[in-house]
Amino acid sequence: MIFSLVRNFILESCRTVGRSILHFFESVGRLSSFAVRSLYFIFVPPYYPRMIFRQFIDIGYYSLPVVGMTTLFTGMVLALQSYSGFSRFEAEGAIATVVVLSITRELAPVMAGLMVAGRIGASIAAEIGTMRVTEQIDALRTLATNPFKYLVVPRIMAGLLMLPILVLIGDIIGIFGGYLIAIYKLGFNQAGYLNQTWEYLEYMDVVSGLVKAAVFGFVVALMGCYNGFYSDRGAQGVGRATTNAVVSSSILILILNYFVTQLFFGS
């Protein structure tokens, strides 16, 4: 009796673990196939200029206030924190360099990526998920329109191209935030601070941040589209797709951030 119970428990546990592993690999396979198709269809006409333009506005223009505010205050906090920390060993002069390198290499792309993931990833998943639930995606197919080209490609293109632009603007605003605090609160000399900012900034610092932004933009759009496209039926299904889109893209942003950093600065 006890032997049978133990055996059943072990078998059930193995079954649960096996099912989870199979489900995981199935999801990874489906996501990979989705990502490859998304990139492939970017190069295959027809294109939908109106949809692409709409997504550029949605993802790029409307995210600007959020990204601007985030990077502005991040730059300000960074200057303040660096000052209070660096003053312990009289290295206040490095504040401008710390601000510019941190913002361009790390903080602007990651903060912008996370903010856009929250704002856009959720909205993409909810919109496409609702279209799935209300059969609008099936309707596209019956109207001889490839839903991938009509819905996914414009969003992926907007994510890939708009996030680097947002991050470039975020870089400028973030550095300006640090400058404001350094000059008007900490009493730094304007010319000296600006000189320090430019002196150690290299071309690659900005480029690496923009490459990260493009990767993050792709991830946010991809996870939003993927979760929306495979959303379960009903309001609960769309809700879950939205949550999954934000959580998965945020985690992927943090993981990929390490690998892109390793690629640029690992050696």
């Binding site: 609702t130 279209m131 209300t134 059969e135 609008q136 099936d138 309707a139 197919r141 019956t142 109207l143 001889a144 329109t145």
Partner: peptide
């Protein structure tokens, strides 16, 4: 698919497009 027309159970009209664009979606596409 060009031979087909389909009336969906819930209508499946595109929320983001006005009625005229919904009606002409397929013919414009083709």
């Amino acid at each position: 698919a060009e031979k087909f027309g389909m009336l969906f159970q819930g209508g499946a009209l595109f929320d983001s497009l006005p009625v005229w664009q919904n009606i002409c979606f397929g013919v414009l596409e083709r």
